[in-house]
Computed example of a mutant assay.
Amino acid sequence: MTTTAVATNTRVELLAGRSWTSVCDWDQLVPGRGVAVLLPDGTQAAVFRDHTGRLYSVANRDPFTGAYVLSRGLVGSTADGRVYVASPLLKQRFDLATGECLDDETVRIPVHAARLGAA
């Protein structure tokens, strides 16, 4: 999907438990930047859109520091095209599609299913 194909009143939804939860407007997502959202169970997620218009969501908690800051991280991509967010604190990179830490293969963060819904 590309950003030009998305209506301005479109909402971003995350799968929370067994139901989809509306978390923010598509227009609030600046390509390459994240937003933090609160899910119904009290956990935080970080939502991103990349420069091609793809939507991603991962846990907002940095597993190395325990701080809820991943939504403030920088989005980039590896030479082989893996899109990641780099933690703003210690700079570990997390694959936005899988949650895998690209700098420590023993660490992984939760990934949330995300989709576009109607406003």
Rank of each mutant, 00 (worst) to 15 (best):
G76V: 08
A113V: 00
T52V: 04
L55T: 10
A36C: 10
G34I: 11
P63Y: 10
V83S: 03
A36R: 15
A79V: 01
S71H: 13
V69P: 05
G32H: 10
Y68L: 07
E100Y: 06
R11P: 10
G53W: 09
H51S: 04
V107W: 14
V58L: 07
R18I: 03
D27H: 12
L90F: 15
S57T: 01
V107S: 04
T3A: 04
R11F: 13
G53H: 10
T4V: 08
D27R: 15
S19A: 14
V6G: 06
G99T: 03
S77Q: 14
V37S: 06
G42C: 03
V47N: 03
V69L: 12
A113C: 02
G99E: 07
A36L: 05
G53F: 09
S87T: 07
W26T: 01
L74I: 11
I109V: 11
L29C: 02
P63E: 03
D104S: 02
Q28H: 13
L15T: 07
L38G: 03
L74A: 09
E13D: 12
G66H: 15
L55V: 08
T21L: 04
D62I: 07
L39F: 10
L70V: 05
G73C: 07
H51M: 04
D95Q: 06
L39M: 07
R108H: 14
G99C: 06
A45N: 04
A79P: 04
V58P: 03
D27F: 10
A114S: 06
